[in-house]
Amino acid sequence: MGSFDLAGRVALVTGATSGIGAATAALLAERGAHVLVAGRDRSRGEAVVAAIRDRGGKADFLTADLGKAESVRQLAREAGDLGGGRVDILVNNAGAFPFGPTDQTPDSDMDAVYALNVKAPFHLVAALAPAMAAHGRGAIVNVSTMVAEYGVPGMALYGSSKAALNLLTKAWAAEFGPRGVRVNAVEPGPTRTEGSAGMGDGLDAIAAQAPAGRTASAREIAEAIAYLVSDAASFVQGVVMAVDGGRTAV
């Protein structure tokens, strides 16, 4: 497998009990990483872990409510313990994506979205990146969205939170890159997951606007993430990679 091989590395994936997170956890495990599957739902998390182990991979589940700062810090500590004192790869995938008019958005939604989409990655990077830097290597990927790049009615809250994450990606690349930690992001387009199932035909309508003309599978997004955390991307730093079927290119 060469430069895509992740054998011997410990990877923490948040929001990994379903969708893109679960697909990413499975793929990183296939490539040799010890994957720490983080999420709120223990039964779903343990199912993801069991599936990875059934295929010969190594995985453990960690419960975390990433909407609370102390729970985020606790997750970082537990991940380090399970990883034998280190975490080599961090995938900040957990996120909330409520849609709706700006004037009908309650303060509680604003607080919850920014707590999960911005503050949780911030706290995890603060807790884990310095140790990566001390070892001289590490890889972080933040999962953003294509609607962080352009305005969409009803997506002001979600899009703005991910736009903040895009800037954090670049700032962290500048901060930790000189010490061997690569920080990048992916911007998925419309993707078929459990979370997007309720969008029905609306998801297909969004997908039809892109050159690819279709929705992505969670595995397709995971492939981009797996590339960015691997040595194949050793010279890729501070990039926000569109994985959207070409939507933001046209």
Rank of each mutant, 00 (worst) to 15 (best):
E194W: 02
N93M: 08
G57S: 04
R219H: 13
G198D: 12
Y227H: 06
R73K: 07
N184A: 05
L28W: 08
L62V: 11
A64Q: 03
S108I: 03
V183P: 01
A131T: 02
T14E: 01
L27G: 01
A112W: 06
L6R: 04
A112D: 10
L116Q: 08
G39M: 06
M199E: 13
R219M: 13
V10R: 01
V147D: 14
A33P: 12
R44F: 11
V152Y: 10
G45K: 11
Y150I: 07
S43N: 11
I221W: 02
N92Q: 01
A11R: 03
G202K: 00
V229Q: 10
G100H: 07
G80Q: 15
L90K: 11
A131M: 00
G180Q: 00
V143C: 00
K68M: 04
S43A: 15
A69L: 05
V48L: 06
R77T: 14
A210E: 06
N184E: 08
T215E: 02
D41A: 03
G177F: 01
V183D: 06
A127Y: 00
S234E: 05
S234Y: 04
G15P: 06
L66K: 07
M110E: 15
L75W: 12
V113E: 13
E187R: 15
Y227I: 04
D107M: 15
A23R: 09
N93D: 09
R42I: 01
L228N: 02
D111M: 15
A216M: 06
G80P: 10
A131F: 00
E220Q: 14
G19D: 12
R219W: 12
A208G: 06
M199D: 13
L36R: 04
A22I: 03
F4S: 14
S217M: 06
F235A: 13
F176M: 02
P211Q: 12
R40F: 08
M110V: 15
A29S: 14
E149F: 04
G15F: 01
V113F: 14
L168V: 08
R182F: 03
